[in-house]
Amino acid sequence: MTEYKLVVVGAGGVGKSALTIQLIQNHFVDEYDPTIEDSYRKQVVIDGETCLLDILDTAGQEEYSAMRDQYMRTGEGFLCVFAINNTKSFEDIHHYREQIKRVKDSEDVPMVLVGNKCDLPSRTVDTKQAQDLARSYGIPFIETSAKTRQGVDDAFYTLVREIRKHKEKMSKDGKKKKKKSKTKCVIM
């Protein structure tokens, strides 16, 4: 069974824990209790493949930012979460993405942009803004509501699919490099 290491990042209060708990335990946590770091595991079937999701729910508070490099190193894919009623959390996505790329030393890291709290009427981040940002990053965008469960499975499952595509691409690139290195030079 394939294991996928997913990391949920975003500013404090955007609903990272609520999304994760909704996926794992099928219930909505409405009281806000700032996370330092929590880890969850769940076995699911995605596109006919049974897999184990190892999900790291991270601290959004700035005082825990020193811990970010460590979990970013171990993560295979990242859910970059903002709240649709919090423009600052949307603007912060850029910083999370840049930090992930720096730590992973790669421009090509599996990510999904997630606009959470889409059940709320007080939207300050337009869907088109988020779609445009995701398009500019070359990553999928999904709106979710941890409260109603809308888009929750889709967000995590899409990230797994992005990781699969990335692994497939990397193995193809690896095979191309191996083929090239088999060419021999004969000096007579």
Rank of each mutant, 00 (worst) to 15 (best):
G77P: 01
A83S: 13
I100F: 06
R68I: 13
I100V: 07
S65T: 09
D69Q: 04
T124C: 12
I84T: 14
R73I: 06
V114P: 01
R123H: 11
K117D: 07
Q99V: 06
D108T: 06
E98G: 03
P110T: 04
G77L: 08
E76L: 08
L113R: 00
N86F: 02
R73W: 07
D119V: 02
S65Y: 06
M72W: 06
P110L: 03
R68M: 15
E76P: 01
Q70M: 02
E107V: 13
G77Q: 01
G115W: 05
K104R: 14
F82H: 09
S65K: 03
V114M: 09
D92V: 04
Y71P: 11
Y64G: 14
K101F: 07
A66M: 06
Y71M: 15
K104A: 13
D108M: 07
G77H: 02
G77R: 00
F78R: 01
G75I: 14
P110R: 03
S106D: 12
G77E: 00
R68C: 14
E98L: 03
N116S: 13
R123V: 12
Y71L: 15
A83N: 14
V109T: 05
R73A: 11
D108Q: 06
E98P: 01
V125E: 12
Y64S: 15
I84F: 13
Q70L: 02
C80A: 05
G75V: 13
L79A: 05
C118N: 10
D105S: 07
N86Y: 02
L79N: 00
S122E: 13
V109A: 06
C80L: 14
V125M: 11
E76K: 04
R73Q: 10
E76R: 04
V81L: 11
G115C: 10
A66Q: 10
G115R: 03
K117S: 14
K117M: 15
M72P: 08
S106N: 09
L79G: 00
D69G: 03
A83D: 15
F82C: 12
N116E: 07
Q70I: 00
R123Q: 13
R123W: 10
N116F: 02
C118S: 10
E63V: 05
T74S: 12
Y71K: 00
L113S: 03
V109Y: 08
R68T: 15
A83C: 06
V125T: 11
M111P: 00
G115N: 04
Y64Q: 13
N86P: 01
A66W: 04
V112P: 00
R123K: 11
P121Q: 12
F82A: 12
V114E: 00
E107L: 09
A83H: 06
D108C: 06
M67Q: 00
D105W: 03
V81Y: 02
A83F: 01
C80R: 01
R73F: 07
L79W: 01
P121T: 12
D105K: 07
R68W: 13
K88A: 07
R102S: 07
D69L: 00
Y96A: 05
Y64C: 15
G77K: 00
R73M: 08
R73V: 08
Y64H: 09
T74F: 15
V114W: 00
F82L: 08
M67E: 02
N116Y: 02
V109C: 07
E107Q: 11
R102I: 06
S122Q: 08
A66N: 07
C80G: 03
C118Y: 08
V112T: 02
F82Y: 11
D119P: 03
M72I: 14
V112G: 00
L113G: 01
E107F: 12
A66L: 12
E98C: 04
G115Y: 06
E98A: 05
N116I: 12
D119Q: 04
D119L: 02
K101L: 08
R68Q: 15
D69K: 04
R73P: 03
E98N: 05
I84L: 13
S122L: 08
F82E: 02
D108K: 05
R68K: 08
E98T: 04
M111S: 01
K88V: 07
F82V: 05
D69S: 05
F78G: 00
M111G: 00
M67V: 06
D105T: 05
C80W: 09
H94L: 10
D119A: 03
S65V: 07
S89G: 08
T74L: 14
D105V: 05
K101W: 04
Y64M: 15
S122I: 08
M111A: 01
I84W: 12
L113P: 01
D105Q: 08
F78A: 01
D126S: 09
R123E: 13
V109R: 03
V109M: 07
C118R: 06
D119T: 04
D69E: 08
D126E: 12
E76C: 13
N86S: 09
E98D: 09
V81N: 05
C118E: 11
E91R: 05
T74Y: 15
P121I: 07
S106V: 10
F78W: 03
F82R: 00
Y96R: 02
G75F: 14
M111N: 01
K101Y: 04
C80H: 04
I84P: 14
R102C: 06
R102F: 05
M67L: 05
K88Y: 07
F78L: 07
D108E: 10
S65N: 12
